[in-house]
Design a binder for these strands. Sequence first.
DNA 1: CACTGTTTGTTCAAATTGGAACTGCCTGCT
DNA 2: AGCAGGCAGTTCCAATTTGAACAAACAGTG
Lengths: 154, 154
Amino acid sequence: MNESKWLNQSEQQAWLTYVTASTLLNRVLDQQLRTDAGLSHVQYGILARLAAAPDGSMRMLALAETLAVTKSGLTYQIVQLEKEGLVSRGACATDDRGVIATITPLGMELMRRAAPGHVSLVRELVIDALTPQQLDVLAEGFAEIQRRIVERKM
Amino acid sequence: MNESKWLNQSEQQAWLTYVTASTLLNRVLDQQLRTDAGLSHVQYGILARLAAAPDGSMRMLALAETLAVTKSGLTYQIVQLEKEGLVSRGACATDDRGVIATITPLGMELMRRAAPGHVSLVRELVIDALTPQQLDVLAEGFAEIQRRIVERKM
DNA sequence: CACTGTTTGTTCAAATTGGAACTGCCTGCT
DNA sequence: AGCAGGCAGTTCCAATTTGAACAAACAGTG
């Protein structure tokens, strides 16, 4: 299925644009969160998922998967967040191997303060930069990309 | 201009999908390049730009900008590549502050070996995952996002 | 129940990253 | 020419990240 070995001009242009812009975007978001709330983008992601989960709790692996972070990377970040008192770890009732991370009231409080600024920046740089149609297409596209990546690992 | 403080359901979904997928994509590409050619994705990017540049040369800052890497990050990577003999550094004729990085014949050789596999994976996971129209939207969209980021820094 | 293969998390070492500080050079003005 | 303000690269340091190796706990089978 790889008849054409190389990318044509516009494909290459699209790819380079994407790589550069997404790298930049990530850094800008990280910077804003850090100065604004003392959190990295990844840490914000962790707290956001926990805040949205029932009981503010999730198992480590589930968390790692939805965040696209490696297990060891997540362990590291959870330890950091625990030091700050934003998250706590507990045993899993149904599986002794499991560890359940839970966002603390302090963590929730921080999210309430951090979220508006972050969301606002995401809106300014991304959501409002695109038409609703473009955003749909983009969501579709990345969903397909993700499917291909996941499927590929087998 | 931020009348709506939060993201609606589909906006949020789109954003989460993008963040997760792009993180994953980046890691997969990195892994493939590493096992396949012993290069990180960033290093590949550096060599690719140099290979495409006149004389295989570029100034450090220009390189850093097109790659969306910080100056210190680039210095580090160039040092690594130099150790491998894939890149060399030289003085800039018109500006004594400047440093010019040049890809070596060995670097070109490595690129000839590494590029096909990388391009093929990018095609498989991204280019072929999208219709030409979707790819256009992606390019358009990220170009606009990048414009907003750059403009914002002033 | 014992046994084998898997799954979860953690720990460890090595690689990478980004920001701040610093040196040396360039530019515009006086 | 002499100076103030900026720019280009490097260095240094603290924070992250990842894969590999491990220990403990599960699950399925004979």
